[in-house]
Design a protein around this nucleic acid. Structure first.
Length: 460
RNA sequence: GGCGCGGUGGCAGAGUGGCCAUGCAGGGGACUGCAAAUCCCCGUACGUCGGUUCGAUUCCGGCCCGCGCCUCCA
């Protein structure tokens, strides 16, 4: 018994987490469709489930985290055509950018990142099984899942087939036997990417890849399936239908977790509103990945998150405070994570509460009197931060700043020279000159602090 | 229309049937050449109307407001 409690969308409540195999926890999270840069909304689940991954690794001997890469999809086809480049070139480039951006956010790489195009055979086999069991049928070159064939359809999203049809706003394709049926396989034209199948050359529908890849890499059933709240319906509902019906099992994944929606300045992020930001946009504006990560973790994962410029600035200042304390403390032996941080995370990943606990540890470090006490308080803070994927940078490097923000103004040597000049003035009691130099540094966004051990500086 | 989520102090944001969130901002103090940082102290809250209860921000119901999903959007 570890004490980990997670909110399960299937039951709409928090439940104690008990792995199917206590020796091996298996988690699947829906990954990117690689046709464009990852935006902030894509980044949220990556960070949320990265924290869960860290917590699970801390609690269990073995964790397998799988996150797919969707590299066949109609938006990809359209984007490649617009760029006049081969699909494989687009997906490979986008995947590399995705990795670079998620690495910048401090997200650990999953244990496996299966690509859809590497699992077409498994998808075809799964669809054949569904056809054989009477859950799918071929019509007009498509293979469709027959929703009425599954009585339990709708358990995750809490909507019945009738409700879905009643609310449907989209015209039903004529080849569907039932308006709720969804595509497992669709035909490709000669220009479109396609694979041979019993139903002719074609490509997979959206949902089937996750059914195929989660089974291939995690086995069935597995422990945790995660993604954004907007994936509950139809994506996850349909994944469940496919997997359960293909195998005749009552459960695909034990716990289904969904992170809340991300808004920007109170509005839905969209290209038409001009508030659409990619992770790279933020990094290019000079924000550190760790700052962006903290913004995400300051709100509980199931709550809606309002992304605001104000919040980014505050998160940066918060990290400055932590790193300021870490810089001033001696490095000692590694320590255990603070209990309060762990307990907050065990309670359905309550990261705001964990951060609150981390602030208490920060205060403890600032108050610690002796060097051994300071070393141990520092180690606890770093260990607690590690669970959240924070505070792992070199404090001096963090405080001096990185990238564009650091190189824009005075360089390190110039700053040191000015500080030396100011200290000479201070020694001579020429405080007017000392203050002038301080103002000069401040104008270059350099903050200096006179301490008992001399003057330190950081970029604000 | 159907399904679901949320409305907490100046701001962000946890949480709880009766006692503290936390951070920022603000006020006071210590320290400092002055600052900065740090430490100490302080104020202000639970959309609305009812109900349950000895007691509700916390449970239940109505209402108002905001948001998400409803066939390929994380």
């Amino acid at each position: 018994m570890t004490g980990l409690v997670l909110h399960n969308t299937l039951t709409r409540r928090k439940e104690p987490f008990a792995p199917l195999d206590p020796g091996h926890v298996r988690m699947y999270v829906c990954g990117p469709t690689v046709y464009d840069r990852a935006h902030l909304g894509n980044a949220r689940p990556v960070i949320v489930f990265d924290v869960l991954y860290r917590v699970l690794k801390r609690l269990y001997p073995r964790v397998t985290y799988a996150r797919n890469i969707t590299d066949v999809e109609d938006k990809i086809i359209a984007a490649a055509a617009a760029n006049k480049e081969p699909i494989a070139a687009l997906t490979a480039r986008t995947e590399a950018m995705y990795h670079a951006d998620m690495d910048a956010l401090g997200a650990l790489r999953p244990d496996v990142e299966p690509r859809a195009t590497d699992h077409v055979a498994e998808m075809v086999a799964l669809i054949e099984k569904l056809v054989a069991r009477g859950h799918a049928y071929e019509a007009d070159g498509h293979v469709l899942f027959g929703v009425p064939s599954m009585t339990a359809y709708g358990e995750l999203s809490g909507r019945s087939r009738d409700e879905m049809i009643a609310g449907a706003r989209v015209e039903v394709a004529p080849y569907k036997r039932d308006p709720a049926d969804f595509v497992l396989w669709k035909p490709s034209t000669p220009e479109q990417p396609g694979w041979p199948s019993p139903w002719g050359r074609g490509r997979p529908g959206w949902h089937i890849e996750c059914s195929a890849m989660s089974e291939r890499w995690l086995g069935m059933p597995f422990d945790i399936h995660g993604g954004g709240i907007d994936l509950i319906f139809p994506h996850h509902e349909n994944e469940i239908a496919q997997t359960r019906c293909a195998h005749g099992i009552p459960l695909m994944a034990k716990v289904w977790m969904h992170n809340g929606f991300l808004m920007v300045e109170g509005e839905k992020m969209s290209k038409s509103l001009g508030n659409f930001f990619t992770v790279r946009d933020m990094l290019d504006q000079g924000h550190a990945g760790e700052t962006l990560r903290l913004v995400m973790l300051q709100t509980h994962y199931r709550q809606p998150l309002d992304w605001r410029a104000e919040g980014i600035a505050r998160a940066k200042e918060t990290l400055d405070r932590f790193y300021l304390a870490l810089r001033g403390a001696p490095v000692g032996a590694a320590a255990a994570e603070p209990r309060a941080v762990i307990e907050a995370l065990l309670d359905d990943l309550n990261t705001p509460s964990a951060l609150s606990a981390l602030h208490a540890d920060l205060a403890a470090l600032n108050k610690a009197a002796t060097e051994p006490e300071r070393a141990s308080a520092r180690a606890r803070l770093v260990a607690g931060g590690a669970l959240l994927g924070l505070l792992q940078a070199e404090p001096e490097a963090w405080l001096r700043g990185t990238g564009a923000a650091a190189s824009a103004g005075l360089d390190d040597a110039a700053i040191e020279a000015l500080i030396a000049g100011r200290n000479a003035a201070r020694k001579a009691k020429d405080f007017k000159e000392a203050d002038r130099i301080r103002a000069e540094l401040a104008a270059a966004r350099v903050i200096i602090e006179d301490g008992p051990k001399g003057t330190t500086w950081r970029r604000g």
